[in-house]
């Protein structure tokens, strides 16, 4: 100990201490960090970004610009985040088929892997919402009352455009709010998070994750292809207009058919 203490003012002592400290932190890091995985992800991510950049250059850059900075034909994608890409490309809205009032949902053009790569590239342009994890949009574990509260949230925030149960509705100049039946919960979550076209965004600060889950759960109750309708066939769920149309066409035709039949049955008809 004396030896060590005597050399503590040696010119190289600081360097030795520094070496020890570095070795200790490095060792600790090596011991605790999931080093291998992190490394692999790192390289995969950069690979994804590379691949995404190539895909982007081919499929997206004509409107969004080669660096995603936007042009007169398409908005800037800096900061929209991976979630937005996953929604737009995953539902087939992007790439757009033709310029128009609105990019409609259509069969998707890119595979899941390509979508991920595109998302990685766009996310690298600027920080934005990430693709949600399954537990973020899972509707498991919500009670009836929580789902009903989701209905209230839906009527407060969504029904103005999407109708009472998300059947969709018209907006100005040919734009519209689409029908939400059977939309993947992940996509509903993403579009609430990021907004899309005419749809405003409802980020975490405005609508917390749990409320989004409640809304998804409510839609799952009232508007899927499996939703039972206690009243029978629903006529599209558009309310009085479709009901009136049905009364004026099918029902009136049937009634007139009956009147003609009744009027034709008379005493004359029995004579023969």
């Amino acid at each position: 100990m004396k030896k060590l203490s005597a050399r503590r003012r040696h010119p190289l002592a600081a360097i030795v201490v520094l070496l020890f400290a570095l070795a200790a932190t490095g060792g600790l890091y090596a011991a605790f960090a999931p080093a291998g995985q992190a490394k692999a992800e790192q390289s995969n991510l950069s690979l994804d970004i590379e691949e995404g950049k190539k895909l982007f250059a081919v499929g997206c850059s004509s409107c969004h610009g080669t660096g995603g900075q936007g042009t007169s034909d398409g908005p800037s994608l800096v900061g929209v985040g991976a979630a937005s890409v996953d929604f737009q490309v995953g539902t087939g809205r992007m790439p757009m088929q033709a310029p128009g009032a609105q990019a409609p949902k259509k069969p998707k053009v890119y595979t899941e892997e390509e979508t991920r790569q595109l998302a990685a590239f766009v996310a690298s342009l600027g920080a934005g919402p990430e693709i949600p994890k399954p537990e973020q949009y899972s509707i498991k574990g919500l009670t009836g009352e929580e789902i009903a509260a989701g209905g209230d949230l839906f009527r407060q925030n969504c029904a103005q455009c999407h109708n009472f149960t998300g059947e969709g509705g018209a907006l100005t100049k040919g734009k519209y709010a689409p029908n939400l039946a059977d939309v993947d919960p992940k996509h509903i979550y993403e579009v609430m998070e990021t907004g899309s076209q005419a749809m405003p965004s409802f980020p975490e600060g405005i609508m917390p994750e749990k409320e989004k889950r409640q809304i998804i759960a409510y839609l799952d109750q009232v508007n899927t292809s499996e939703t039972e309708n206690p009243g029978g066939y629903g006529l599209g769920g558009f309310g009085p207009v479709s009901e009136g149309l049905f009364a004026w066409t099918i029902v009136l035709a049937l009634l007139i058919g009956i009147t003609v039949w009744v009027a034709a049955r008379n005493a004359k008809a029995r004579k023969s």
Binding site: N163, T165, V222, P240
Partner: peptide
């Protein structure tokens, strides 16, 4: 179905939905 009142929700003056139309 006519007037699937159960999915419409209770009236609140601060809410409104699209497709809010009267009977024909």
């Amino acid at each position: 179905t006519i007037n699937a009142v159960w999915v419409l929700g209770p009236y609140r003056p601060d809410l409104v939905s699209t497709n809010a139309q009267p009977d024909w």
